[in-house]
Design a protein around this nucleic acid. Sequence first.
DNA 1: TCACTTTTTGACCAATTGGTAAAGACACGA
DNA 2: TCGTGTCTTTACCAATTGGTCAAAAAGTGA
Lengths: 203, 203
Amino acid sequence: MPDGTQKKPSRIQQRNRHLILDAALDVFSAHGYRGATLDQIAEAAGLSKPNILYYFSGKEEIHVTLLSQLMETWLDPLVEMDADGDPMTELLGYVNRKLDMARDLPRQSRLFAGEILQGAPRMHPHLMADLKPLFDEKCSVIQGWVDAGKLAPVDPGHLIFSIWSTTQHYADFDAQVRVLSSGDTMDGARKHLNTLFERLLAP
Amino acid sequence: MPDGTQKKPSRIQQRNRHLILDAALDVFSAHGYRGATLDQIAEAAGLSKPNILYYFSGKEEIHVTLLSQLMETWLDPLVEMDADGDPMTELLGYVNRKLDMARDLPRQSRLFAGEILQGAPRMHPHLMADLKPLFDEKCSVIQGWVDAGKLAPVDPGHLIFSIWSTTQHYADFDAQVRVLSSGDTMDGARKHLNTLFERLLAP
DNA sequence: TCACTTTTTGACCAATTGGTAAAGACACGA
DNA sequence: TCGTGTCTTTACCAATTGGTCAAAAAGTGA
């Protein structure tokens, strides 16, 4: 088995681990943890099942690896929100970055949503360790902006929830959105959400 | 087996079908379709597995029954939105009714979310047949309000998406919300969402 | 080329899962 | 009380699933 403690993963190891994780993202995001099978992942990756288990110790390790990687990507746009910038610009920028992610990384969004939906059994520690402190910090920043009169009074926590829910909706509920709307969904969504949060936040 | 074509389901049939559906709602909403097992449902219902299959022809029929029942409940608050009422009152009323549902029926919300998240494999027909016409109708109503100058210009479809996403977020992402907030979440949510939509929609 | 390591595979489990068959327990009107 | 239809259980499948193992194949450096 590939020794995790060694420094240099071979070219082949890098390629195959990447193939597996990408295939697993497809399968897990489409069917959920329990609904995904190693056979499906193996076929999507173009490898045999035992070969997959040569690179990962089991189904759960693949899932956890995916979730860990996801956490970084997920927090990134929020990290970028700058306490010293213009409040409205920063917040609308955050909204638009989240909307970009819903458009460009829908599989990741659905993987995350599925995990939370089922009570975050595998992600709870990550939420506590990584998300919570960042969330609290950014809430303080927003509260500071409100106190300085640069934003209309708003509950920072619920504001962030609103940004998350409205943007991720277009990835997570895509099947529903597609039934109900025709054509240029994302353009309309962007315009609508910018208006929504601008009107909410203008002092 | 209980003949579905007959008029009178016995007292026992009613009770047991109800027991099964309630247990299944627990299990399906917590683990998703594939993640739920008949044994779990049977145990939660306090019946044996073959006994469950005496009342339902299989796992899928239980799920579909649940989804069909859910559709009615789910559309109800939107049906109630009255074209002849005061636009702002009607829309805020809708927001608050959806928030009530997120608070009182989180299992149903999660069952629905899980189904959509996985591409609505079993619900797509229902969405087309029931949800779509209602959605279109209410979009027209809202557009009428906008045209009459009673609301700020807004895209009706995306407005409805925003209402759905922000309210259901508190049920579907409950695990995350609970990590991040303390105590009186629902009260704060209600105040925040009323402000948000009032500010968006005030002409 | 050869020895040695890394990668891949085919054959195989044990456990779980959705589902069945048939016998038994129960309810209830005559 | 009996007989008939409703309900429940015991015992069982066949298929799927996550995972193992030893051996074969493919690289790799000298």
